[in-house]
Design a protein around this nucleic acid. Structure first.
Lengths: 150, 150
DNA sequence: ACCCTGGCTAGGAAAAAACAACTGAGCTAT
DNA sequence: ATAGCTCAGTTGTTTTTTCCTAGCCAGGGT
C-alpha cells in the first residue's frame, strides 16, 4: 500500500498510484491485456511470488479493473481467468505512455517487444495530449492548472 | 528495485517501471512538475522519509529525468533544487494518463486538485492515442502487436 | 561563537516481498 | 479405486524494503 494518507487525496494521480503503483500491478494488467489471463501463465511470465500475485489480482478485481471469470475448455475442469473490464481497458493510455517513454528514454539492445497500432489499418499509434476536437497538442503547450480549494 | 530480471527486458513498460514503478517516484516527478523543486518542500508535501526521498531523487537524476541544480536566492547560501529534463517532461502523458484514469474510475468527494489545459487558450486537454496525422483514435480501435522474436 | 535552516545520513522497527512447501479440487490414466 | 497431474491458490519462514526518529554538516546570520 502506498500509504494510508494518500488514499483519499485530492490528487487523482496519487489515488491511482495507491493501487496501480504497487509492485507488479501494472505488469499484471499489461499481461492480461496481451491475453495472458490465467494465474499460472502470468506467474511464470513475470516470475512473481504466488502470494503477491494473488494479492494483486484480488485488489485489481476489487478495484474493478479485472473481472474474475470461470471457464471450461474442452472436457477439462473449471478454471479461473481474469479479463479486463472497461475500467481496465481505460488503462491502455497509461501503459502505452510507459511503453513510449521507455522506448525513447531507456534504450536497449533488444528489439521492441510490442507496438501499438490501429487495429483496422495497422498504422502506428502513439499517446499524446488532444483537445476536445481530437487534435493532438504538443507537450510544450500543455499546462497544469491547480484548481481552487474546494 | 522492481527485480533485477526486469532491468533488461524487451518490454519497455517493464523497463520503465523498474525505476518509475518504485514507491513515491512518480509522485516526486509530479511535484517537481508542479514547481516544488526543493528537497524539504517535496518531503513535507508527500510525507516521505528523507532517506527514501534522497534515494528516489538520486535515481531520477541518474536516469536523466531530473537535473540537480544549485541556486542562490537573496543573500542566502547555495541550495539544491531539482528540475525536469526533457526526458522528465516526456513523462507528462504518463502522469496525465494516471490523472485521467483516477478522475474517471476512482471518484472522491473532494474536488479535483488540478487539470490539464492548453497553455495558450485554456482549453481542456486529455490523453489519447493519436495517429501520425495527429488525429485521435478511439481506445477500442487500438491493438497491441507483439513483434517477431529478435 | 552560537544558532538556524536545508539537505541529507544513520540506526533500529515495521511492513512488504521473496522463497518454499503444501492444500485441494477435478480430470485422467492404470 | 487410486495414484498422478495441473491449476489456483494458501501457509509459514526468510530477506528486502520502507518507515520513523534522531542527528550531522555546511553556510550564513546575529
Amino acid at each position: 500500500m502506498k500509504s494510508p494518507t494518500l488514499v483519499n487525496q485530492r490528487c487523482s494521480i496519487a489515488r491511482s498510484l495507491v493501487v496501480l503503483g504497487e509492485k507488479w500491478t501494472l505488469l499484471v494488467v499489461r499481461d492480461v491485456r496481451l491475453g495472458h489471463t490465467r494465474f499460472s501463465d502470468i506467474r511464470s511470465r513475470l516470475g512473481v511470488a504466488p502470494d503477491v500475485l494473488a494479492d494483486r489480482l484480488g485488489k485489481l478485481v476489487d478495484l474493478g479493473v479485472l473481472e474474475r471469470r470461470t471457464y471450461r475448455e474442452g472436457g477439462a475442469r473449471e478454471r479461473e481467468e481474469y479479463v479486463l473490464t472497461p475500467a481496465g481497458e481505460d488503462l491502455a493510455p497509461v501503459l502505452a505512455g510507459l511503453h513510449q517513454w521507455g522506448t525513447r528514454h531507456l534504450p536497449t539492445d533488444l528489439s521492441p517487444a510490442s507496438r501499438y497500432v490501429e487495429a483496422a489499418t495497422g498504422r502506428p499509434l502513439h499517446v499524446a495530449f488532444v483537445d476536445d476536437d481530437g487534435r493532438s497538442v504538443d507537450i510544450a503547450a500543455v499546462a497544469v492548472l491547480p484548481s481552487e480549494a474546494g
